[in-house]
């Protein structure tokens, strides 16, 4: 298993700022995107991504390539940080949680529709059980292979497929009207 990040991690551990920059450039958007899908909160997602990198800097001098790819390790850390935050949210519900901040600028109708649609999809994703949401986020949004996603979730490929199928079934039911609109009703879902 060749880890494309191994050399960057080694150099970053020695204080090579170019290597550290390359790792940030390569992985920060993916970490933030992943945490956003998981938490449905941009600020918290950035906090998670920052924490992932701080841990990466701490671990870099001890990093031994071969056990897991660096990206897999990062996703696992991000996933666990997201799980922790989701658990805390459930334990201490915040009255404002999940409320979208209204954009004061008026939007053209297409943009408004797209924003509404995005909000519906995000809300439906947020309603999924954590592990189903993580599976869908990894495979659909992060474009991870089935083997990589199963590795990140620390489950078998069969278990991953089960999580994906259950998650997609729930989303299909929750978003049937959105899908219908989007496909223009031409070849939309008959469910």
């Amino acid at each position: 298993m060749v880890d494309p990040d191994a050399e960057y991690v080694r150099k970053a551990a020695e204080g090579d700022t170019l290597a550290a920059s390359a790792l940030v450039r390569r992985h920060l958007p993916r970490m933030v995107g992943f945490a956003r899908r998981m938490l449905n909160d941009a600020t918290e997602a950035e906090d998670v991504a920052q924490e992932v990198f701080l841990r990466a800097w701490r671990e870099a001098p001890n990093w031994r390539p071969g056990a897991a790819k660096f990206e897999t390790w990062m996703h696992r850390v991000a996933l666990n940080l997201c799980y922790d935050r989701l658990r805390r949210r459930r334990e201490t519900p915040d009255a404002d949680a999940g409320l979208a901040v209204a954009d004061p600028a008026p939007l053209p109708s297409d943009a408004w529709l797209a924003q509404q649609r995005a909000a519906r999809v995000q809300a439906a994703l947020a309603q999924l059980p954590d592990r189903q949401r993580a599976a869908i986020t990894l495979v659909h949004f992060q474009d991870c292979s089935n083997i990589a996603a199963a590795d990140m979730l620390e489950v078998s490929v069969e278990a991953l497929e089960s999580l994906l199928a259950r998650g997609r079934r729930t989303l299909k039911a929750a978003l049937a009207d959105v899908a219908q609109d989007l496909m223009g009703g031409a070849d939309g879902p008959s469910s």
Partner: peptide, 13 residues
Amino acid sequence: AVARALDATLDSV
């Protein structure tokens, strides 16, 4: 077609 519609819905965001 059903699966594609869900993919497109997810891709929209």
